[in-house]
Each structure stands twice: as C-alpha cells, then as structure tokens.
C-alpha cells in the first residue's frame, strides 16, 4: 500500500508549498472512517434511546435500584435477634480493641480516658452503660455532641466486639482520666 502511495506522491502534491511545507492528499485510512462512522451511529442511537424514547436509567432511579438491592442483601443475611451479652473471648476483645484504636481512640483517648468524648473507664454513663445501650449509642451516634452514627461503617458483630472491649476497660483508671459525666450505673 505504501508503495502505491509513494508512486503517486507527485500527483498528490498540492498546488504549492507553505514556507517549504508540502502537503500530500492521501485518502483517509478506511479504519479511521469506519471508527468515525461507528461512533456517530452509536451516538445517534444512544441519544435516541435515552433522550427521545426515554429509556434512560436516570441517576435517581439508578440510585434507588442500588439501594434496594443492597437492602435486600442485608435483610437476607440478618440473623434472628437475640439478647446481647458482652463477649469475653480473647479474639473478640482483640478485634474490638483494633476497631477502637482505629475509630474511637481520637475522641475517647488511647486508654478510654476521654478527650473530646467522655471517659469510658469509669462507671458513669451519659447514654447508658448496658451492652444494649452502648451498642445502640455506637449504632446511631449522638450527632448533637459530635459522635457519628457507626451503623453504616461497622457491622453488628463488629459493634458488639468494640462494645465488649469498652466494657473490659471498666475500672482501669488510666492516667489523665476525664471527670465523670452522666449517671452512675
């Protein structure tokens, strides 16, 4: 192909040059024309389908579909509800500690002594100190005081683990503990 074109170079020259630059007038590569036409046809089809025939999956619907699917998956995996009790095995407490260090430590302190958030090592609780109550507080948070809801980030099992770890800190009396807040339990 290039041989043929080379032979034709002279007839392909345009009538003159610009500052020594000459131009050939080769045919457009077939695949290039094909590519252009395909994208145009696809564009026309897509616009017709989405905007004129209205087959669009609008962003809103798209989101709802995804949310519904996720909810369904969640419900299916839901275990029957049981009364919560604190875990005591070493593995769960270790996992709880890891979760604590990552998510809670910044506000409640390295040893649970309390920084921005309250002291977790004393028997005083603002929102209740039972397993159920602590799990609930972690789940839905206390937005007014800056504690975020963790239910979208931590699964129920993880929340129970970190609750167990927190309860294991009771009476540890760390240095620099924050003054008691809330009611004694």
């Amino acid at each position: 192909m290039s041989k043929k074109q080379d032979k034709n170079i002279d007839p392909l020259m345009m009538d003159h040059d610009y500052d020594g630059i000459q131009e050939l007038d080769n045919n457009l590569p077939t695949w290039w024309i094909g590519l252009f036409i395909i994208t145009i046809i696809y564009g026309a089809y897509f616009v017709t389908d989405h905007l004129i025939l209205g087959n669009q999956v609008s962003a809103e619907v798209y989101r709802e579909q995804e949310v519904l699917m996720a909810q369904k998956a969640k419900e299916e995996s839901k275990a029957p509800s049981v009364k919560l009790t604190a875990l005591t095995d070493a593995a769960s407490l270790a996992s709880g500690k890891a979760i604590y260090m990552k998510n809670c430590m910044a506000c409640h302190g390295l040893e649970g002594q309390g920084v921005v958030g309250p002291n977790l090592t004393d028997p005083f609780w603002i929102h209740g100190g039972s397993v159920d109550k602590i799990v609930h507080t972690i789940k839905v948070g206390v937005p007014a005081k800056g504690m975020i809801a963790w239910k979208s980030q931590l699964k129920p099992q993880k929340i129970l683990e970190v609750t167990s770890y927190i309860l294991s800190l009771q009476g540890s009396n760390p240095a620099g503990a924050k003054a008691p807040e809330g009611a004694k339990e």
């Binding site: 630059i21 131009e23 050939l24 007038d25």
Partner: peptide, 17 residues
C-alpha cells in the same frame, strides 16, 4: 508547522486535515 519542518517530509493528508 514544526513537524514537517523538522522532519522535512510533506504532510500526510490534506483532506484529513
């Protein structure tokens, strides 16, 4: 401008331009 100048070759295709 600068490619054909530097390479000393004619531009491939006027109609493509």
């Amino acid at each position: 401008y600068f490619l054909p100048k530097a390479a000393g070759r004619p531009v491939f295709s006027y109609r493509l331009s």
